[in-house]
Design a protein around this nucleic acid. Structure first.
Lengths: 192, 192
DNA sequence: CGCCAAAACTAACAACCGTTAGTTTTTTAT
DNA sequence: ATAAAAAACTAACGGTTGTTAGTTTTGGCG
């Protein structure tokens, strides 16, 4: 077991624990027990409890940023760009279920320096998202509305997926995706 | 200052604190300091830290249950019932901003007995909500869709209001309500 | 086999937690 | 004004927290 994969195992276990009990409600002894070692042994692999939460949130932030940069460059309609983003939210909820939940619920417990970086990421993502919505409104693809309100509504609608998803529901994913996309777009797309 | 209003002040201060630092991240000493007394003095008014969270969540649960019971008896269309519920969510987000945020984010830290009661409340609310949606689908007011998915999407969309609302935005409330209702209904209402 | 680093262990520290006990101050009612 | 009740205080308890120091065990390589 090399150091990297052991560290990854600890972070993944931490994500499951943080999700269930919250960051401040989770203890290093509890985490160590779930990994199968003593609390002090964790520090052969990580530097602090802070670091665990940071790695989780920053990792997720990077995934979203990368996807946003890809979508921005896409040569397609605003609606198709939004669909791509919605699909990515669904995909990442399935592939990184616990980390997404932790990021959404526990990011405000990040230490100061990580918090600053995380908020910068998030603001940029939201700004890009709004820009796509605005572009769609301006060219008539989307109904007239406040871009920020549209963004918040769409992103919030996608957030409940983290509660819905369980591994045994992987097969229902396609049905959910189609219904969810329809619901969101029929609400914001012109001449729906 | 009689006992009731002092206790209410403590609970309200706790709501603000729990919202900012989370339930497990908040300390009784911190709470006491915000109230302006010593930690031990809190126990002249409350029985435990547990109780604070319970009172907040149960209070909010009661408000929603009461409104749901009122709406159920309404002699109006399914869409109008949904609009009434949406308006209530907006109203309560404004009037009980911190308590709503705490209930949404910290309910899973309730002790076992309060948790049981809270989940019962919530399940009942969701069941009633779904029934109204199903009724609307069956009588053609709403587009064909899975009632649970519709419910989750609507309720999640309303949740971001807790982040948007600040006292200085009270005047924008009407604009938000109209736009939000339009967005949600145009997405689920037939022949929108 | 023997070496060395990685990774586990035990033990403990200093700080902080919710809460209680016992006492003093403040408020209320007669 | 005074007695009773309410609400504040100081001090401390037993337990838990993240983390460190120092030691032992494990596993891969010559």
């Amino acid at each position: 077991m090399n150091q990297r994969s052991r560290k990854d195992e600890i972070i993944q276990t931490a994500a499951i624990l943080f999700r269930e009990k919250g960051y401040t409600g989770s203890t290093m002894r509890d985490l160590a027990h779930n990994v199968g070692i003593e609390a002090a042994s964790l520090y052969n692999h990580i530097n602090s409890k802070d670091e665990l939460l940071s790695e989780i949130c920053i990792h997720i932030a990077h995934l979203f940023t990368n996807e946003m940069n890809r979508v921005k460059k896409l040569n397609s309609s605003s609606v198709d760009k939004l669909i791509a983003l919605i699909d990515f939210h669904i995909l990442i909820t399935i592939d990184h279920n616990d980390m997404i939940a932790v990021t959404n619920q526990e990011w405000r417990h990040l230490n100061d320096s990580s918090m600053t970086g995380f908020i910068k990421f998030r603001d940029q993502y939201e700004q890009n998202f709004k820009a796509i919505v605005k572009e769609g409104i301006d060219n008539g693809e989307l109904l007239q509305a406040d871009p920020e309100l549209v963004m918040f509504t769409v992103l919030s609608s996608l957030r409940w997926l983290q509660f819905w998803y369980r591994p045994d529901r992987k097969l229902e994913t396609d049905t959910i995706r189609i219904q969810l996309k329809n619901m969101l777009l029929k609400g914001i797309q012109a001449h729906g």
